[in-house]
């Protein structure tokens, strides 16, 4: 009797191990661990010091939250190139409302958090809705609609800031980027909460079905009663919201906004999603993978900074990682 239980237990342990390895994000998790291990050795343990790990999470949160929004768009086989522009446009609005430097303030007084933050998020959703309408109602290819929206949102940001750096924001803004709750950064908590909510939405709601269905085959999705147009519209609104949230986190961390604050964010979010196993052809991908993907990029960028690598070596390494991640994914799929 006890033998049987033991055997069962042993079997279960093996099963668990096997399951873990077969789990779709296993490769990525192992890669992340390997990169962290290598960097820890290369820097003599500096990268895995607790303080630095917190920095990685805070730095990565902007990209990670944006990547979750990007994932929704890519799941419908679209792409959102406007993330960086949106993050700048919305952060420009928020910071111009919250700055105490009155000549830069568009309201004439420093607005409290509960006025400025909803305004930022609403602007993100609104601009996202415009690209969503162009894509779903007129049929403009997502690449073009969001490329145009990137320019427009960036232009709006310039319009608000006049091209200057906005600083001296009200103090409560630090909450989003510099504060810790029980030693854990608020930015990381936001990232985890967003990830958990999205995980829930993608696993337990009918909305998720329509997103995946739209991405894998819009025609059959339409035929089976999915409102393809509204699904497309909604993912761009989600992506706009996430871009604004990411912008909020970075603004809270740096406490200033300039036109180059969010350079390459759109490419970093796409890279995170793709490294995380989201298929660019739509209909395939998980939020856990996307979070891991963003962590990989954040860890690498942070490690290179600590190693004092040239900024352009960063881009070289990032390029190799993106190509390698996709190559591994394709070989594994064969």
């Amino acid at each position: 009797m006890s033998e049987v239980t033991e055997r069962r237990k042993r079997g279960t342990a093996r099963d668990i191990a096997r399951r873990v390895f077969r789990y779709e994000n296993a490769t990525l998790g192992i890669i992340l661990a390997a990169i962290m291990g290598t960097l820890a050795v290369a820097t003599g343990g500096k990268t895995i010091a607790l303080r630095n790990m917190k920095m990685v999470v805070v730095e990565g949160a902007t990209m990670g939250v944006g990547a979750i929004g990007q994932m929704f768009v890519i799941l419908t086989s679209g792409i959102d190139l406007s993330v960086a522009g949106m993050a700048f446009g919305t952060s420009a609005l928020g910071s111009a409302m919250m700055t105490t430097q009155l000549w830069q303030n568009i309201l004439g007084y420093a607005a409290p958090i509960w006025v400025a933050v909803p305004a930022m998020l609403a602007m993100g959703v609104g601009l996202g809705a415009i690209s969503g309408l162009f894509v779903s109602r007129i049929g403009i290819p997502p690449f073009i609609a969001t490329l145009g929206m990137w320019q427009i949102a960036h232009g709006i940001g310039f319009l608000i800031t006049g091209g200057f750096t906005i600083a001296r924001m009200i103090d409560p803004l630090r909450f989003f980027g510099q504060r810790f709750i029980y030693g854990f950064p608020v930015a990381g908590i936001i990232w985890i909460v967003v990830g958990a909510v999205v995980y829930f939405v993608l696993h337990y709601t009918s909305y998720a079905r329509s997103v995946y269905a739209t991405g894998s085959n819009p025609v059959s999705a339409w035929l089976s009663g999915v409102n393809v147009k509204n699904t497309q519209l909604s993912v761009y609104m989600i992506s706009g919201f996430m871009a604004a949230l990411g912008g909020l986190i970075r603004t809270g961390r740096v406490m200033s906004v300039s036109y180059s604050s969010f350079d390459f964010l759109e490419l970093q979010t796409i890279a995170s999603a793709v490294i995380g196993g989201v298929s660019l052809f739509g209909g395939k991908g998980t939020v856990v993978g996307v979070v891991l993907g963003a962590l990989v990029i954040a860890v690498v960028l942070n490690g290179m900074t600590i190693l004092r690598a040239d900024p352009f070596l960063e881009s070289l390494v990032l390029g190799v990682i993106v190509i390698a991640a996709v190559a591994v994914d394709y070989w594994r799929g064969r």
Binding site: L267, F312, E314, S315, L316, G319, V322, V326, W331
Partner: peptide, 22 residues
């Protein structure tokens, strides 16, 4: 390798900048 061109050329773009810098 049947990789999506968007990603491949994005990677090559980054590598190109890296090489240019070097």
């Amino acid at each position: 390798f049947n990789m999506p061109s968007l990603i491949v050329t994005f990677g090559v773009w980054q590598i190109g900048y890296g090489v240019a810098y070097y």
